[in-house]
Computed example of a mutant assay.
Amino acid sequence: MESLVHINEVSFPIEGAPSFQILLNSQKLQNAMKWLTLGNLECVALLHLPRMKHLQTLEIRICRELEEIKVDPKQERRRGFAVDYIPGSNFHTLCNIIIYQLPNLLNLTWLIYIPSVEVLKVTDCYSMKEVIQDETGISQNLSLFSRLRVLRLDYLPNLKSICGRALPFTSLTDLSVERCPFLRKLPLDSNSATYSLKTIKGSRWWWDRLQWENETIKDTFNHYFQD
């Protein structure tokens, strides 16, 4: 594929760390990648994602030793990006992210560098306690998940937090939480998903145990709940 002069779109799964290393060594493939599945990255605890400026869908699955995923903030800042302002991010086209069967993954804080994510699905991540880690010092001005339409969390048995503060979720239409027994609070307040939200799905047992800032907010979102 390196020898194809006019290649401008690539989509395929990568299985195993050696194959992923080939992608890391190929700027041409990174620049052409639109859909990528990464699986079975043996002996990889820390995954540094390369810049793929045309990537639209990323799936990471069955990486049993993976604990952390990163994009390099220093590299982003050198190119003129900051945590709260990423106008030319090389991930600006990445809108679909699917994460499943990563039993040692701790969080998804790297998503603060993905401004265009629209669909986020996270399944079977037993060690994850937070989606966005609280200790990152994220700017209050950051429009985190501003384009997110669909959020699905399933079988995260130790998850306690999506984000430590309420988020506007200006585009959120569907929120689904299944088998996350310790998630007792949602990052929602009276200003969240005001005009976009359609449904919140989960078990009645989970919904009745949620903690809310006040009864007014609880009543507001109760209209969207479906078990």
Rank of each mutant, 00 (worst) to 15 (best):
D219F: 06
T109E: 10
V150E: 14
E135F: 08
D219T: 11
L58G: 05
Y155V: 09
Q140L: 11
T216L: 09
N104Y: 07
K70A: 12
I112R: 01
R51W: 07
I62T: 14
R184G: 06
L49R: 02
Q30Y: 05
Y195D: 15
S116K: 07
I99P: 03
F12G: 01
N96L: 11
K74H: 13
F91S: 08
K185F: 01
W212C: 06
T173Q: 12
W206A: 00
L159E: 09
F182N: 15
S3Q: 14
E76G: 05
E9V: 05
K34G: 04
I86F: 00
E65L: 02
M52C: 12
R51H: 11
D154Y: 10
L111F: 05
W212K: 04
E178Q: 10
I138M: 11
L153Y: 01
L144R: 02
L47C: 06
C63P: 07
I62K: 11
L148K: 01
L105V: 06
S89K: 00
Y100K: 12
S146V: 04
L153K: 00
S146C: 11
V119F: 11
I112T: 07
C95H: 13
Y126E: 14
Q21D: 15
L94C: 04
E215H: 09
R147Q: 14
K74Y: 13
L172M: 09
D189C: 07
E130M: 01
L186F: 03
F91R: 02
I62F: 12
M1R: 10
Y126P: 00
